[in-house]
Design a protein around this nucleic acid. Structure first.
Length: 363
DNA sequence: AACGCGTGGAA
DNA sequence: TTTCCAAGCGT
């Protein structure tokens, strides 16, 4: 059995192969500064927050429009939170947008608008945890940092052929990864990115391309043909099925072609986002028991219900449309023009909004 | 420590 | 179709 011997020369060789591969194969990404140009910590931070649990493809257009609207951290920090949340609509995990705004203000007020360059200080900032702190330290400031994301976890589990479920060996993996992060003279920015790039392009979740891997000669799983068996995960037999919930959504228009919406509450799902009014969301089986917000007789019901999958439950919404309903003015709801609404809705409400096209002409 | 928190693309 | 899961964090 081969086994990676973490001698200084092997570690150096590992890094040399990895970096050489990266410099030939790296993707050009909007937040990835040109070679030999200094990185902008603001762009590094913004991209890393957006990339948390989110694919590169999904992030790119959001990153572009954020940088266009807020070219610097000061621009972002001076903007009201709602504008940031609304620009974030569709990207998911909205607490990231809330923390983005909070973090920008922290940096503006406590760090003279410059991201700090120590782990201790970075971890005090909203939305920055161990991974993102390490990413900023290495990518933006070229400082040694043990960057461990999902890519690195998968790579390390395979490289050292760790057969236990990923969930149970995260501390071990972090310890294994730290072997490669000494206080070297080398390029810590490229090293961090190369490891993640390798996970994204070569050491992929399914069907890793081991023949193309620049460090496969050190990989225990490759030597034992275990690369498709690792990492292992906890069996999901014990996991409960995703609950199904149901509710009513009310698409209410006035004569000015405006839609009735609310600013959702500060906590919980879709916090602080713009929402279309709905009833409570109740267990699917208790569909008949929930309390509608309005009298059905004032609405036309769209036959085709919309479905949306959240992380922990699925939601089915019956959509009711009215263009004649009289609305009591309250603090909770307000009118917004359809034009302004279009890109400001979380996806679940965008589906509700779009379903009006399916309203049959008569009924 | 385990769970809540979105979305869309791939297989 | 279903399932997995992508550059995690906060509580």
């Amino acid at each position: 059995m081969s086994s990676f011997n973490p001698s200084l020369s092997n570690i150096s060789d590992f890094r040399t192969h990895l970096l050489a591969w990266y410099r030939l194969n790296r993707r050009e990404l909007p937040w990835r500064y040109q070679q030999n140009a200094p990185p902008d910590p603001y762009k590094v931070w913004l991209s890393e927050i957006m990339l948390q649990q989110t694919t590169v493809t999904a992030v790119i257009p959001y990153f572009q429009k954020f940088i266009k609207k807020w070219p610097t951290l000061c621009d972002l920090a001076q903007s009201p939170q709602e504008e940031i949340i609304d620009m974030w609509a569709g990207l998911g995990y909205y607490s990231r947008a809330r923390n983005l705004h909070k973090c920008a203000r922290q940096v503006l007020q406590n760090h003279q608008s410059v991201f700090p360059n120590t782990e201790k200080e970075l971890l005090t900032l909203a939305g920055i945890g161990p991974y993102t702190a390490a990413a900023i330290l290495s990518i933006a400031y070229n400082k040694p940092a043990n960057i461990v994301d999902g890519n690195v976890e998968r790579f390390m589990a395979r490289f050292f052929m760790l057969k236990k479920p990923l969930r149970d060996i995260k501390p071990l993996i972090k310890n294994k990864a730290s072997v490669f992060v000494g206080d070297y003279e080398g390029d810590h920015s490229d090293y961090s990115q190369s490891l993640m790039e390798l996970g994204a392009l070569i050491c992929t979740p399914q069907s890793p391309k081991c023949e193309q891997c620049p460090v496969h000669h050190y990989c225990e799983s490759y030597a034992n043909n275990f690369q498709n068996k690792i990492p292992t995960r906890i069996s999901k037999e014990n996991k409960p099925l995703r609950p199904q919930r149901h509710g009513h959504a009310y698409l209410i228009k006035n004569k000015k072609n405006e839609i009735l919406v609310e600013r959702r509450e500060e906590k919980g799902l879709l916090a602080n986002t713009i929402g279309i009014p709905t009833s409570q969301w109740v267990d699917h089986k208790k569909e008949k028991e929930h309390l509608p917000l309005y009298n059905k007789n004032d609405f036309k019901e769209i036959e085709e219900r919309i479905n949306h999958v959240f992380t922990h439950f699925e939601l089915e919404l019956s959509v009711y449309v009215s263009e004649t309903l009289k609305i009591d003015q309250s603090n909770k709801y307000y009118w917004i023009s359809e034009e302004n609404l279009k890109r400001k809705l979380p996806t679940v409400f965008k589906k509700v909004y779009n379903s009006q096209e399916k309203l049959s002409p008569k009924k």
